Simulated assay, not measured.
Amino acid sequence: MHLHLMQMGYQAAQALDAGDFAVPFVMFGRMRTVTGAHDLPVHVADGADVQHALRKFFNYYPQARAEVFDVEWAGGERVDSHGTPWFTTERRYAVKPMWRVLLNGKDLSFIGGPELALHPGDEVHVFPPGR
């Protein structure tokens, strides 16, 4: 188990440097305490969306994921190649109330959500609830 955890941490660290350009993640308030960092560059490939960058970031800082996100389960039926119906579930993360994830200073919840494409020069800011 310990080896598996170490390997996952190593892979998460390598993933941060894999990509065509870096997107700076800047943390504020409690996020700085939880992560022990002020900012972190996350490299992404051309055409990657914010959700992909968030996944890389929170794989690197898994202890911060529960601070920012609530887990939601989405499910639906699908039919396999033999015509047999299956019910599948998928874990999705939703930003907790009062937390803000901003792309270039604009709240993701108001500009299209985490499916927005990232471009060179973009920045992501994570703000905890506050005054």
Results as ranks from 00 to 15, higher is better:
His119Ala: 12
Gly76Lys: 13
Met98Asn: 12
Asp17Leu: 14
Glu67Pro: 03
Tyr60Arg: 12
Asp122Leu: 00
Glu123His: 11
Ala12Cys: 03
Glu115Asn: 14
Pro97Tyr: 12
Val126Thr: 00
Thr88Ala: 03
Leu40Gln: 13
Glu123Val: 15
Leu3Tyr: 13
Met31Trp: 06
Thr88Gln: 03
Val124Cys: 01
Ser109Glu: 13
Val71His: 06
Arg30Asp: 14
Asp122Met: 00
Leu118Lys: 01
Phe21Cys: 02
Pro62Gly: 00
Tyr10His: 08
Arg55Ala: 11
Asp107Leu: 08
Asp46Val: 14
Phe87Asn: 07
Ala66Tyr: 01
Met98Pro: 01
Arg30Cys: 09
Arg78Tyr: 12
Leu108Ile: 13
Phe87Gly: 05
Leu116Asn: 07
Leu116Ser: 03
Thr35Val: 09
Ile111Asp: 03
Glu67Tyr: 10
Ala74Lys: 12
Gln51Gly: 15
Phe110Gln: 02
Val124Leu: 15
Gln11Arg: 09
Tyr10Thr: 07
Ala66Val: 08
Phe87Tyr: 11
Glu123Tyr: 01
Lys56Arg: 10
Asn59Lys: 02
Ile111Gly: 02
Met98Gly: 05
Leu103His: 05
Val23Tyr: 02
Leu116Gly: 03
Ala45Arg: 15
Pro114Tyr: 10
Ala74Tyr: 13
His4Ala: 09
Gly29Pro: 15
Asp107Tyr: 10
Ser81Phe: 07
Val95Met: 09
His43Arg: 15
Leu54Asp: 01
Gly130Pro: 02
Tyr10Ala: 10
Val23Ile: 15
Gly112Trp: 11
Asn104Leu: 06
Leu40Gly: 01
Met6Ile: 07
His43Tyr: 15
Gly130Leu: 11
Ala18His: 12
Val42Asp: 01
Asn104Ile: 03
His2Tyr: 09
Leu40Cys: 14
Gly75Lys: 05
Val79Asn: 04
